[in-house]
Simulated scan of single mutants.
Amino acid sequence: MIAWLRIALAVLVVAAATVVLLPFQLVALRFDLKLRRHIPRLWHRVACRMIGLKVTVHGVPEKSRPLLIAANHASWKDILALGSVVDVAYVAKAEVRGWPVFGTLAKLQATIFVDRGEKRKAGDQADEIAQRLAGGEIVVLFPEGTTSDGNRLMEIKTSLFGAAASAVPHAPEGVVHIQPVAIAYTGIHGMAMGRYHRPIAAWPGDVTLLPHLLGALREGAVDVEIDFGERIEYRAGSNRKAVAREVEARLRAMLISRLRGR
């Protein structure tokens, strides 16, 4: 009974925050005001608090622009956790646009939707990301291309860094900054999180969303640690595969270190 009361309270508070912030965000989106970049962070903070995500940050977000964040991806909770810390725009697969609730929230946050099955559109999609970067927005890529089990980093898809190459000509100094960011789920109810509780944190994708969401709400009290790594410069002469390998190595090192409690 207590668990269901907690779920009801969380839903009511998040819904209330949505009702309050929605008009401001709609106006900001309509007139492309910079305010649209800041409002989602307020909503994410409320959502994290009510869902039970305790976010701890290590390091600092890079201040140089254009900035592309490359983060590992275990769950929809990554979006809430990272979005509660820094004003960002996410890159998501096109089908997310049609998801109930999550699709609407993604559109309200001005998410960049990409269709990975349409190679003919790849250039246009990379250009859209480049334009957003050039406009000063921090764009988040999940270069694994899918969610993992949260215990490891999957192979990074180098093609997703085409956006950095497209943005270089528009960068004032001819450089796009890529910051690796590791998101690790390390505890639950104040105790270290083992493999038994990992399904609460991670959402591999073969589990139906609603049951997983309800399970996360019932459990609550999940510790999330976000590590902001050192930036990597992407220039006109940079090798995309080499940059991707460097990003992958740094992400893996930060994630493994945090999961091992170092």
Score class of each variant (00 low, 15 high):
W4D: 12
L9F: 15
V13Q: 11
A16V: 12
V19W: 13
V20Y: 14
L22P: 01
L22K: 05
L26Q: 07
F31G: 02
L33H: 08
H38A: 12
P40R: 04
R41P: 02
R41K: 09
L42Q: 03
V46M: 09
H58S: 09
G59H: 02
G59R: 06
R65F: 09
P66L: 01
A70F: 01
A74N: 03
S75I: 00
W76G: 04
L80I: 03
L82N: 00
V85G: 04
V86Q: 00
V88Q: 02
V91F: 06
K93F: 04
V96M: 08
V96G: 00
F102W: 11
D115H: 07
E118Y: 12
E118Q: 15
E118C: 12
K119N: 15
K119R: 15
E128W: 01
I129E: 04
Q131R: 14
A134H: 04
F142Y: 02
P143S: 09
E144Y: 11
D149T: 13
D149E: 11
L160Q: 09
F161H: 07
A165L: 08
A165I: 06
G174Y: 03
I178G: 04
Q179F: 11
A184W: 07
I188H: 05
G190T: 11
M191I: 04
W203I: 01
T208Q: 08
L209P: 04
L210T: 13
L214V: 15
E225R: 10
D227Y: 03
R231G: 02
R235K: 09
N239H: 11
R240P: 04
K241S: 12
V243S: 00
E248M: 13
A249H: 13
R250Q: 15
A253D: 13
A253C: 11
L259F: 10
L259D: 08
R260C: 10
R262I: 13
